[in-house]
Design a protein around this nucleic acid. Structure first.
Length: 549
DNA sequence: AACTACTTCAACCGCACGTAC
DNA sequence: CGTACGTGCGGTTGAAGTAGT
């Protein structure tokens, strides 16, 4: 379709570059037909004159019959364009300006329920248009994706959603407190250890009353963030059973997730579960993913928000407390350092900045990444450690668990600079970050991990010496096989995890050698072996050795 | 001040659906 | 029943604005 571009003077004094549609190609077949032979339909921004014409027409004839506008007026706009202009800008009672917190929360909730049904959402937001909501959501997705945040805040939890009629019959999976051990069982006795640790951590977490919920919520976040929200899907996850039976590949880590979960309606077509067991964790989460990773970081810094707010289940809304998402990605005039000092618990923008910087320019890698995982874009451990480092920079120090399981010392290099403004990625690219690292201080964060039925339980000793926002880890010294295994799941090669294939194999051998964890892994891997299931673009058939052993 | 990168949002496009003929 | 038309919806685009260098 070709257009001629003409600069015209609009009546409001503005010069508009207006595209006039070529007569030969005037929207034939899409409901935007030309006025007549040889006539042209104007495109591009509307002028106030055109607005006036349209308003007068609607006053006289009412809404609807939009194609008649161009017939009865001098307006050279197609009906669709008129309708759009009226609906989005001219009709009365339109609300302009940024969305209020209430509106934002409502949008998030509605999107969780109904997906990209912008028009339906607009019905519940008086004065707002579907286009506005859509734009808002797309912007939100971008921001949260950049920040590595989950698409839905923790308060938008599946358990709390009041599902619409059209979704109630889908395989809505919920975290059920009574059944929190369902996913922990999985043939692993270590699950109880994990549960104990979860509960222990819960005692340290004022807001996390139920860590199974937390984990479930985390998984949503992990799934969303690790898939880069490619599917932008609401947290409607089919049951593990459904997944297995359908042979669907895992949504988590999937770079092709859009093809796995196309829409909420997709789940409507899935036969209802016979087994009502439910949890909000995908089978991938339950069976195979290191769901403790985000949770782990949450435990480390119980009073912090930002990244973990996306994961942490809280009983109180966060919207009112801290406006995480500004209408535009703006930054407080207060220096980030001051914010860290004064409000260490909620340095949202700062963290977003640093996360942003991290995402834009992840640390260099020394890692051999298996082919299988090279296509996974999770970087869960990366995010975890990054977050941990950031938070340790806030001089949070917390002992969360006994150190007997402590292993795996992660030495992180920190940057003493505190403010990472918007252009941080540019700074990193230009090499200034390297300069700043000359003054780095070290923070050692021993992070004990225990891979357990696909999860990681943890006890963490965190000590921090320096405030930091931007950091670059130098080394992850792994001495335990399960850490290796975990890292094989988690790392994306961004954290300098020194590992080779032989150590990986040894780790797996240790884990699988009579260990019920390993057995559970093997059992899961084999029992579901017919249908290839993948982490991201990885299928279980091309998994690293743990799946083939 | 100039340039660049990025964000926002108005508008367009294609498709689907309902209805009239 | 098939076709044309009108309308609505969701995805996408690109100009304008903004911020950083």
């Amino acid at each position: 379709m070709s257009y001629t571009t003409t600069t015209v003077d609009s009546d409001d004094g503005m010069h508009s570059s207006v595209h006039y549609e070529s007569p030969a190609s005037a929207n034939i077949g899409n409901g935007c037909r030309s006025k007549g032979k040889g006539s042209v339909l104007k495109k591009g921004p509307w002028t106030s004159t055109e607005d006036g014409i349209l308003i007068n027409y609607v006053r006289k004839h009412g809404e609807g019959n939009w194609n008649a506008v161009q017939r009865h007026t001098s307006l050279a706009r197609c009906g669709k364009s008129c309708r759009l202009r009226w609906a989005n800008h001219l009709r009365p009672n339109l609300k302009k300006g940024a969305f209020s917190q209430e509106e934002e929360q409502l949008i998030v909730e509605m999107h969780a329920k109904m997906g990209n049904k912008w028009a339906q959402m607009a019905e519940h937001l008086p004065g707002r248009t579907d286009n506005e909501i859509k734009n808002y959501w797309n912007t939100r997705i971008k921001r949260r994706r950049r920040a590595g945040l989950p698409l839905y805040p923790p308060e938008i939890h599946v358990e709390d959603l009041r599902w619409g009629e059209e979704y109630t019959k889908s395989n809505i999976i919920r975290v059920d407190r009574r059944r929190r051990q369902d996913f922990l069982q999985l043939g692993s006795s270590k699950a109880n250890d994990l549960l104990d640790e979860l509960n222990f951590a819960a005692s340290l977490l004022p807001d996390a009353s139920d860590l199974s919920d937390l984990v479930g919520c985390n998984m949503l976040g992990i799934g969303a963030s690790s898939s880069w929200y490619e599917s932008y899907m609401p947290p409607i996850l089919p049951s593990p059973k459904t997944f297995r039976e359908s042979g669907a590949r895992f949504p988590i880590c999937s770079s092709n997730i859009k093809h796995e979960f196309q829409s909420p309606e997709h789940f409507q077509n899935v036969a209802p579960q016979k087994n009502p067991r439910s949890c909000s964790i995908s089978p991938c989460d339950v069976d195979h993913l290191p769901y403790g990773s985000q949770y782990l970081s949450d435990m480390m810094f119980p009073d912090s928000h930002t990244l973990t707010d996306g994961m942490l289940l809280t009983s109180k809304p966060l919207f009112g407390a801290v406006k995480l998402e500004l209408p535009s990605f703006q930054y407080s005039e207060t220096s980030a350092f001051e914010q860290w000092k004064t409000t260490p618990s909620s340095p949202h923008s700062d963290l977003l900045d640093s996360v942003d910087a991290y995402i834009q320019s992840p640390p260099s890698s020394q890692v051999e990444v298996s082919d299988c995982f090279s296509s996974c874009d999770t970087g869960l451990l990366d995010m975890l450690l990054h977050e941990a480092k950031i938070k340790t920079g806030a001089k949070h120090s917390l002992l969360l668990s006994s150190s007997e399981k402590s292993f795996g010392s992660i030495t992180c290099t920190t940057d003493a600079t505190q403010d990472v403004p918007r252009g941080s990625e540019t700074q990193i690219k230009s090499g200034k970050l390297e300069d700043s690292q000359k003054n780095l201080a070290n923070s050692e964060i021993p992070i004990p991990m225990q891979l357990n039925a696909g999860g990681i339980s943890s006890g963490i000793v965190v000590k921090s010496e320096e405030l930091d926002q931007v950091w670059e880890p130098k080394r992850v010294d792994i001495t335990r096989p399960d850490v290796l295994l975990a890292s094989s799941w988690l790392d994306h090669g961004c954290f300098g995890i020194v590992r080779d294939s032989s150590s990986m194999s040894n780790a797996l051998a240790l884990l699988l050698g009579g260990d019920d964890i390993g057995n559970s892994y093997a059992a899961v891997g084999s029992s579901s072996g017919q249908a290839p299931r993948g982490v991201g673009s990885c299928t279980w058939t091309n998994m690293p050795p743990v799946w083939s052993l």
